[in-house]
Design a protein around this nucleic acid. Structure first.
Lengths: 201, 201
DNA sequence: TTACCAAAAGTGGTCAGACCATTTTTTCTG
DNA sequence: CAGAAAAAATGGTCTGACCACTTTTGGTAA
């Protein structure tokens, strides 16, 4: 019956045309309309909340969340990680996503034209605060693959704290090379600069 | 507190070393051990059940399910895969892992020497049963990154049924090229053959 | 002893009610 | 009309109860 209530809730959301951000009927109303008890309704609601499909505010109500905010991929990633998290594999897999993002950007001239590259270039030159994590995240965001980004974020959680530190002056050169190569579409050079920089850690 | 209980349950499963198929403590025991009420424990359990992580049998108990049986993918598809972009991302991410596996193998002569390549080569030539899925899986297994394999297996669950079909005679050529290129360490050629083959679908 | 069956205990499924904390709405007061 | 106080609504938690089903236990008969 619990799964049935989840289905009924999905149906109700569709029928009532409840949009993201809007409020769902209260728990007490739901258990009347679905002809069940509040406990059962709550079990279904909490399940949907774990998935990030809805959000409950104490005293306020239950709201439908934005589609993009779903935590499904996050949960999926965290479970895949839990099974096999050999440190080397986590790093290797994270780098897989980083390298492919850079490759993809080099191949797509439209992505290389994004204002982000100029911005990053300037940041490095001016020695503003910029971490490895930020830089790599921007690369993957620019690649436009949101799933890859979500997976990378999960993998990143395991990586060395070195990534959270600001980029040291000594590292400026390879980073600049990396950015310039990406911006010009030099795939091979970008990946090599990327490798060189990665192995400095 | 509900999310906290989910965490505590995951922790408990890890600490007690409960293996897939084994029984979890009963709801009444859990709410004592976690110092909470049965309702709260049930809300957490039902959430994990919706994800397919556990399974409750009426009168029997609650059991930890096999990792492969998780319904994460199923849930994922029913909730977010309705969006075009998301589907594209899944395929793109799967191909990221496939390409990087091939690249890595090409670069490591020790991996290219694995007997699996001769075996696959023979299978294609003899027109034995061989699916795209099997072939790609063998590549990723050979790359030695178990985490990448796990992620790929999850993503593979979405892919077209075409992957489950045997490789047609017309496709033999690019597949042979792919295998030969990998075996010889011709990275560029391998990836191009791989692309050519992928786009045939 | 062994096989079988019934009773008992254990367990998840559902429900009802209560109380609390917080937010929202209404009402009252200046 | 504005602001504050009261009331209502809402989610969060807990307790106890009963039901349906399964597992275990114990005893009885072959």
């Amino acid at each position: 019956m619990f799964l049935q209530i989840v289905k009924q809730l999905k149906k109700l959301i569709a029928e009532e045309q409840i949009q993201p951000g809007q409020k769902l009927p209260s728990e007490r109303v739901l258990c009347e309309r679905l002809n069940t008890s509040r406990s059962s309704v709550r079990e279904a609601l909490r399940s949907l909340e774990l998935l990030g499909i809805i959000e409950s505010k104490h005293g306020g109500g239950t709201f439908l969340k934005n589609v993009g905010d779903h935590r499904l991929i996050e949960i999926l990633s965290s479970f895949i990680l839990q099974q096999e998290k050999t440190v080397e594999d986590v790093h290797a897999t994270r780098e897989i996503h980083e390298r492919e993002a850079i490759r993809f950007i080099c191949q797509q001239s439209s992505l290389r034209a994004l204002p982000i590259w100029d911005s990053l270039f300037t940041q490095v030159e001016l020695e503003e605060e910029l971490t490895r994590e930020t830089l790599l995240r921007e690369c993957i965001i620019a690649s436009g693959n949101r799933l890859s980004l979500k997976i990378w974020l999960q993998l990143m959680a395991y990586s060395a704290p070195t990534y959270k530190e600001n980029i040291a002056p000594a590292e400026k050169q390879p980073v600049l090379m990396l950015l310039k190569s990406i911006q010009l579409g030099y795939e091979i050079e970008a990946i090599e600069a990327f490798h060189e920089w990665m192995t400095m850690i």
